[in-house]
Computed example of a mutant assay.
Amino acid sequence: MTSAQLGDVTIEFEIDGPDDGIPMLLVMGLGAQLVAWPTPIIDGLVENGFRVIRMDNRDIGLSTKTQGPAPTRADLLKAFAHRRYAQSDYLLADMAGDAVALLDHLDIEAAHVVGVSMGGMIAQQLTIDHPTRVLSLCSIMSNTGSRLHGTVAPKLLPTMAMTMTTPRPTDPDEAERRGVESFRLIAGPHYDADEMAVMVRRAIDRDINPLGTARQLLAIQASPDRTPGLRTITVPTVVIHGLLDQLVLPSGGIATARAIPGSRLVMFPDMAHDLPGPRRAEIVEEIVRNAARAKVCVSQD
C-alpha cells in the first residue's frame, strides 16, 4: 500500500492487477476502509484484466483525518431531520475530487468506477462532475441523495448515532467484537462472522476512526440531491441493490436506475447492505458486463 499527497489531503491506496490493465477505481462506503473489499471481488476483476485501484476515503483508514470539534449525537440526529441542519467540513463532491486527484496522481485519464453505499454516492458525483474521467459506472446499494428514496430504516438511527459517537474501545478484542456485531445488524442471511472478524481486525490494525465515520455521515446529509445530475450521465451504468437492505432501502437503487438514462438495475433478493458470498461472482459479472458496454461505445466512435 502507498499514499498520495493530493493538495491538503493524503489518500492511501492499493493497486492490484496488471500495469497495462484497464483502470477500475473501487470506492468503499461509510466508515469502510479499502480492506473491506472482499478478495473474491478483487480477484475476479483482476482475472478479467482490470488494474484495480482501491482507496481509503478521507477520515478513514490511513488517509487524512479532519481536525476540529468532534460531531455529537445531536449533530447527527439533526442532520437526519433536515439537510439544512447538516453542518459538514466537506461534501461528497470534495470526496469525488479526492478520487479524481488520485487518478491524476496515477496518470490515469479515465477509469471504470465502482462504488458501494457512500462510495456509490461518491462514484455518482464523480461521474456527474467529471464525466470525461469515467468509462463506466457501477453504483451498489446506494441512492440519489433524495430524502424520498433509499433512506435509513428508522429502527437503525439510534444505533448508528450511538456507534459513531462512542469512543473506540482500547481493547482490540472488544473493538473486534463490536465491529462484527455492528455489521451483523445490516447484513443479510449470508453473513459470515468469521470472514468479517478478519476484515475488522485488519481495519483495527490500520486505524479505526469512529469520528471519521460521523464526519462522513454529515457530508452525506449535507450534500445536495444528485437526481438532476444523474439525468445527465451518459456512460454505461449498472445499479445493484439488495431487496433486504435496511441501511439504504431498496427504493434508493430503483430511484438511481430511473434517474440515469439507459442504466441496468439488478436486485438480489438475498442481499442486504453487504456483498454476500454467494452473489460475488454475479456482482463481478455485472461489473465486467457493464464495462464491456463502454468498450463497445469506444469502438463505435
Rank of each mutant, 00 (worst) to 15 (best):
Asp94Pro: 00
His130Asn: 13
Thr144Phe: 03
Ala81Glu: 14
Ala79Cys: 07
Ala96Ile: 03
Arg147Trp: 05
Met121Ala: 08
Asp89Ala: 05
Asp94Ser: 08
Arg147His: 11
Gly115Asn: 08
Leu135Ile: 02
Ser146Leu: 02
Gly97Asn: 01
Leu102Gly: 04
Thr132Arg: 14
Ala81Val: 01
Tyr90Gly: 07
Gln87Arg: 15
Met121Thr: 00
Ser139Tyr: 03
Pro131Phe: 02
His130Asp: 11
Glu109Thr: 15
Arg147Leu: 07
Gly145Lys: 02
Leu137His: 08
Met141Leu: 12
Ala79Ser: 15
Arg133Val: 11
Asp94Val: 02
Ser139Asn: 14
Asp94Lys: 06
Leu102Thr: 07
Met141Ala: 12
Gly120Ser: 12
Leu135Tyr: 00
Ala110Pro: 02
Ser117Met: 10
Gln125Ser: 12
Leu103Glu: 10
Met141Val: 13
His112Arg: 09
Ser142Asp: 06
Thr132Tyr: 02
Arg83Glu: 12
Arg133Leu: 09
Gln124Val: 12
Ala79His: 06
Arg133Ala: 14
Gln124Lys: 03
Gly145Met: 06
Gln124Asn: 10
Arg83Trp: 02
His82Val: 08
Ser88His: 06
Arg83Pro: 13
Leu92Trp: 00
Ser142Gln: 12
Thr127Asn: 09
Gly97Phe: 00
Ala101His: 00
Met141Glu: 07
His105Ala: 14
Met118Asp: 10
Asn143Pro: 00
Met141Ser: 14
Gln124Leu: 09
Ile108Ser: 02
Ala79Met: 05
Val114Tyr: 13
Leu126Val: 07
Leu135Ser: 08
Arg84Leu: 03
Arg147Asn: 11
Asp129Ile: 01
Ser139His: 09
